[in-house]
Design a protein around this nucleic acid. Structure first.
Length: 512
RNA sequence: CGGGGAGUGGCUCAGCCUGGUAGAGCACCUGGUUCGGGACCAGGGGGUCGGAGGUUCAAAUCCUCUCUCCCCGACCA
């Protein structure tokens, strides 16, 4: 038995995550480019599936895709006071191009509110131009000091929606509508339960009135902000002079929103579901739903290549000048296994792993590490009995079923797996959410929690949306993740820091 | 930006202390035997030891400088 290439979660969660990403062929550090990664085929395929799920929903809610420049005039970043303050430390700036110092440097977009504000100002004149519902799929750069593959890299891929509306009410509706889209994709597609909530004023997006987020819980109890939706108010409208004339003929600034999810979702997916054997993907975002591993003796490799004609089996033939007798039974076995394998694979849309240079055992490990939801095994014994072996990635349970039932069974297994993975996540979230009724209690629940050791909790406590509260929680290296939109607990209480009345408990956790 | 670790065939690393013919395992190529959970045997190819400078008859090894990556903290999707 070869040693597992994957560190156990209990041993070191951070190493486990790295190992899963690498062994699952999801991504690898770019090594020559600081803080960046190469998203490999398996990882990118997952991202593409997520993109499609999201994009379909954006389109269904009336948005159109556009693309804006990567480079933004530096002065644009300065037009909104909070925005520049929030993003300045993370900016990469282009100061030279064409062999010359630029008159005005460009920043590489860390987000596109400013440049889109500029174009909105140009395009929007009348209430008839509203709402303007735009999305862009893009890469962005934020110069982070600390990077982790998918969870935080210097360059990452994302989607940013930008909308302009004639009223605040309508903009607010948009903010919630897209937050709901994110929650739906997280829960229904990624099988990753989330909590929808409002960010505190300290934690909100730089330049927004309000920021809402979906927060997921990773297997080590850390929170992962997995999507954000911002009510920008008229801040950028004013900064970029995006004005429209209302039906009544009056000039007013537009009300804007922006919302985004990134390749971080892939990291969340990995940290939510994977195990010590490697990646586990929920069927809906698995690039390959099922792989069929045929098992047979391949003694007849040469004869098959040279002469697949069944009439020569058992008869002497000449290969490269040598007279050989092809062993008929074995050739039959391989040919029959492959024939049935391909027939079934076609029926159920599975990939046949017919590589001849590695053994079946190696194939099982290969696909297991890459998170394929179902592996089917078909060997001589199955041929004899008309059966096939079906193994589920999440539970590891093997089942022998009649070949005639696999076409009906596989979709059911995939659906069950999707649901069960969500349930497991929901259960974990519940089990690791605890109430705290004093600041000391919050501290004791969180102080020893680290990303490597795990044991993180979502601590529910009464706190006010006040910088003093955020600061107090930061002393424990945790943050107020959000003020949940839905109060599942005991309603109003007294803020543990300020003593002032608040209407519900907030989520406190350590986070990525 | 602080703390730690690491740069040696494609990968993981040994060798360095005590300078003297660059090694192992995995991967790769050839041939054969295997094949229901990481196969085995035999043969073979592949490295200016991160870079620059220095010490020395001689440097992967000693000295100086430098670059990069990874991990951990503070900043953040």
């Amino acid at each position: 038995m070869a040693e597992s290439p994957i560190t156990a979660r209990t041993q070191d969660f951070a190493s486990w995550y790295q190992d899963v990403v690498l062994q699952g062929d999801m991504a690898e550090p770019a090594e020559i480019v600081k803080g960046c990664m190469v998203i490999k085929a398996n990882g990118y395929a997952v991202w593409e599936l997520l993109q499609r799920e999201l994009d379909d929903r954006f389109k269904a809610t009336g948005h159109q895709n556009m693309y804006f420049p990567l480079l933004i005039p530096q002065s644009f970043m300065h037009k909104e006071a909070e925005h520049v303050e929030g993003f300045s430390p993370e900016l990469a700036v282009v100061t030279m191009a064409g062999g010359k110092q630029l008159e005005e440097p460009y920043v590489i977009r860390p987000t596109s509110e400013t440049i889109i504000g500029h174009f909105f100002a140009k395009w929007i004149k009348s209430w008839r131009d509203l709402p303007m519902l735009v999305n862009q799929w893009a890469n962005i750069i934020r110069w982070e000091l600390r990077t982790r593959m998918f969870l935080r890299t210097t360059e990452f891929l994302w989607q940013e929606g930008h909308t302009a509306h004639s009223t605040h009410e309508e903009a607010a509706q948009e903010v919630f509508r897209m937050l709901d889209v994110y929650a739906e994709v997280a829960e229904d597609v990624m099988a990753m339960p989330v909590i929808k909530g409002l960010k505190t004023q300290s934690e909100k997006f730089a330049g927004a009135l309000q920021t809402y987020s979906i927060e997921a819980m990773m297997q080590n109890g850390f929170a992962l902000q997995s999507g954000t939706s911002h009510d920008l108010g008229q801040n950028f409208g004013k900064a970029f002079n995006v004005q429209f004339q209302s039906k009544e003929g009056q000039l007013d600034y537009v009300w804007q929103t922006s919302w985004g999810v990134s390749t971080r979702l892939v990291g969340g997916l990995i940290m939510s579901h994977s195990d010590d054997k490697g990646l586990v993907l929920p069927p809906k975002v698995a690039p390959i739903k099922a792989v069929l591993v045929p098992i047979y003796k391949k003694k007849t490799k040469v004869s098959m290549k040279v002469d697949p004609n069944p009439s020569t089996v058992g008869q002497p033939v000449t290969i490269s000048g040598t007279v050989m007798v092809l062993p008929d039974e074995e050739q039959d076995e391989k040919a029959r296994v492959l024939e049935v394998a391909h027939r079934i694979a076609k029926e159920v849309d599975a990939k046949v792993d017919d590589r001849e240079d590695i053994t079946p055992g190696a194939k099982f490990f290969h696909w297991e590490r890459r998170g394929v939801p179902v592996v089917l095994e078909l060997g001589p014994r199955d041929l004899a009995s008309g059966s096939i072996v079906l193994k589920r990635r999440d539970t590891g349970v093997k089942e022998v079923i009649p070949q005639s039932e696999v076409a009906a069974k596989l979709p059911a297994v995939l659906a069950a797996m999707q649901q069960s993975m969500y349930d497991v996540g929901k259960q974990r979230l519940k089990a690791n959410t605890v109430l705290a009724n004093s600041i000391e209690e919050v501290e004791s629940l969180l102080k020893d929690v680290t990303a490597e050791k795990g044991g993180g909790k979502f601590v529910m406590a009464h706190l006010k949306d006040d910088p003093r509260c955020d600061a107090r929680i930061k002393e424990f290296k945790a943050t107020i993740r959000c003020i949940p939109l839905v109060d599942e607990y005991d309603g109003p209480g007294k803020c543990l820091v300020t003593g002032e009345p608040v209407d519900r408990r907030v989520v406190i956790a350590k986070a990525y």
